[in-house]
Design a protein around this nucleic acid. Sequence first.
DNA 1: CTAAAATGTTATCATTGATTACATTGTTAT
DNA 2: ATAACAATGTAATCAATGATAACATTTTAG
Lengths: 232, 232
Amino acid sequence: MTKTLREERREETLQMIKNLAWQKMAENGPANLSLRAIARQMRVSSAAIYRYFENRDALLTELCKDAYYSQVAALQTLEPAAADENYSEHILKLSRLYRQWALQNPEKFALVYGAPVPGFRQSWEVLAPFASQIMDIFLEAFQAAWQHDQNEEHPDLPPIPDRLKQQLAHVIAQRKYNVPPAVLYLTLEGWTRLHGIISLELIDQLALLGDAEAFFEYQMQNLIRQSGFVQS
Amino acid sequence: MTKTLREERREETLQMIKNLAWQKMAENGPANLSLRAIARQMRVSSAAIYRYFENRDALLTELCKDAYYSQVAALQTLEPAAADENYSEHILKLSRLYRQWALQNPEKFALVYGAPVPGFRQSWEVLAPFASQIMDIFLEAFQAAWQHDQNEEHPDLPPIPDRLKQQLAHVIAQRKYNVPPAVLYLTLEGWTRLHGIISLELIDQLALLGDAEAFFEYQMQNLIRQSGFVQS
DNA sequence: CTAAAATGTTATCATTGATTACATTGTTAT
DNA sequence: ATAACAATGTAATCAATGATAACATTTTAG
């Protein structure tokens, strides 16, 4: 069953619309994305766009998925850690990739992690599986470090409270993860810390430092140490 | 120089516009804030609004300032720690107030910490002083804990790298803070971790846990311990 | 009490998202 | 090949929005 010409053109057109959308987005911000502007630039009537996307929100939803793909792809640039590798260094590299991707694709980051826009939020169910891919990547890295790079003193943590432990166990069961609760916890910590720094950096709230890179590096280094993994 | 009737009315009108704006914002999201809708609800011609705000962005900028005021006010609900108080507990309380405020005012949080909207971002210079107020509050709390609640082992940290130490020192000098670099660093860590958890929670990315409260509490507890402050 | 300033109104524009009715083009089955 | 059909494109049109201009009304101040 070979692709027909029309189907091929459709895919090209879809891609062209999305490319122009990203371009416009970078110029005028996610809020000001205009379907008509895209149509103009494609030298096509404004109504034509609606043959490809039911409405503006549908386009935005697709762009969201694209953004997730892009982020996952960026993280997968890093080949999986080899058996003999330094696993905590692997986490560091992942963090850097996450940050680099965010700095180089601020529109994509904003769309995925940006302000919740009501009337456009019901799409969460659609996007949730994409979001969990990101966490899975980090979870895998943390699990590897937990298994192979653990310190003599383990993570320096007080016992996890019951309620939290239950929640973690529930997630692990539901998603059929094969990790102890502590690893999921450390992953969540890593992800939230990573995200906190990067999202504040992107809105210039860390501008007081001039450049947030040194802070970021030191933070990630400490994260790994405090997680009980051996230093690189 | 008593206030004239007209001036009084102007203030009332300004406030009414902003109140309705927040209301509309909560309903339809920050992106869909409509000046005409506000005018309609005020039973006033749409052009009248422009006597009070030059344009939509000007209104948004004012709302941003309001949001900062609101957040600062929320944090100042907490009376300053008394001399005999548990200072690390004070940090915990501040964190909870920050989170509660964010959960109860998601539109305000989104406006201040939300996706950077180009064409609306140049207002950063205007907003920077407001933003630093928030950090100042946390800095004060961390400094108090550093001075009075320090552990026997201090924070469990490797030496701060030169570049970062320079940046921290530069901020301290520029802003005339009276704290050691480590305290500024720990404050920044606290703020970014706090922010990371809350911003992900607000966009439902922590929904997998059901309720992020237990995670938040445990994180903040560990933050304080890892900062080298005595537990409460 | 009058001139000036502030505030409000109507009318009007250009732009946008969206829909409808219609034409054109490509696909597929006979 | 061609006829039926589906996919794609168009022009015309709507309602809503941000914004501005010209004009009227009200409040303030000298």
